[in-house]
Design a protein around this nucleic acid. Structure first.
Ligand code: FES
Ligand code: FES
Lengths: 150, 150
DNA sequence: ACAAAATCCTACCTGAATGGTAGGATTTTC
DNA sequence: GAAAATCCTACCATTCAGGTAGGATTTTGT
């Protein structure tokens, strides 16, 4: 599994807030109830999103969370990279670059590098707005050979 | 991490055998020594490759492992799917299809589905021969903005 | 002032997966 | 019949996923 619940729930949270905010702060309890997810677990995920600058918060009554930008200004790659730590497909490749000592002579490295580029290219091209709008053309695009079934 | 050592070493094994076979059987000890990997761990990975029909074996002296097809007739997707179990990006999607009970109303599902399609499309298009030949154009393709550095 | 509503922070826990290791049984060749 | 090789079953340590618990702190409404 490439994306754990942490990253998946992070996306769920971002979408939920984007859809339900209307300029106001959205409370944790509301998100958890709507999405039917654990209050406490969501809290820890949201904490990451705040530290990474994806959300801002307000404490106290009527407090909650709010986006820091317009939905169109988030791309999925940055949200997932923040919560998952990295999106690199293999351990040989880290955020900083290639770290494996066999890299110089490894014939499979270009494969992993190419795979990462394809993934980054896709996730970097989709915005939060695309998801809210249900832009299936962009998400499922020309790759989709069974769109009618989805 | 999307591809564990199991899948990565499986690729290493396939490439090593393809490069060093010359029609003969290649022994486990030789592969492990050349690739500097644990004998025993490789054994368990090769066992998966045999059961999945990717390799055939011969016991006894001068025995070892050999490809069952031409390198051009393996695509990377099938090798990794065999060893990793699945390549699905999230838990909501299994080999058999979508299993999540929120699927019907989930607005992020098309994202994960699209991501899986992009990955499958890439890995399904690369063959073992591409890797042996070091076909960088195909692996790094038009996505590569730093090919000279790689 | 004070209670209620909310986020923030630190710590802990359980089960499964990752990444192996060990030892011997079996098969084939020379 | 010894040597070289694969095959098979079982075990194991560490990490990580996926949470849970409890209380401290901040803000608002009355
Ligand atoms: S094994 Fe690490 S770069 Fe290929
Ligand atoms: S949460 Fe499972 S399909 Fe979206």
């Amino acid at each position: 599994m490439m994306v754990s619940t942490k990253g998946r729930y992070a996306m769920t949270v971002m979408v939920d807030i984007a859809k339900n905010s209307n300029g106001k702060y959205v409370s944790l309890a509301d998100i958890a109830r709507r999405e039917n997810l654990s209050n406490k677990y969501l809290e820890s995920i949201i904490s990451i999103l705040i530290k990474g600058g994806m959300l801002k918060s307000l404490r106290g009554k009527n407090g909650g969370y709010k986006l820091t930008r317009e939905p169109k200004d988030y791309n999925i790659s940055e949200i997932l990279r923040l919560t998952e730590g990295t999106l690199a497909s293999v351990n040989c490749i880290m955020q900083e670059g290639v770290t494996c000592d066999k890299a110089a002579t490894c014939s499979t490295l270009p494969l992993w590098t190419g795979l990462d580029m394809v993934i980054e290219s896709y996730l970097g091209s989709i915005t939060l707005k695309d998801i809210i709008d249900g832009n299936r053309k962009k998400m499922l695009g020309d790759y989709c050979n069974k769109c009618s079934a989805l």
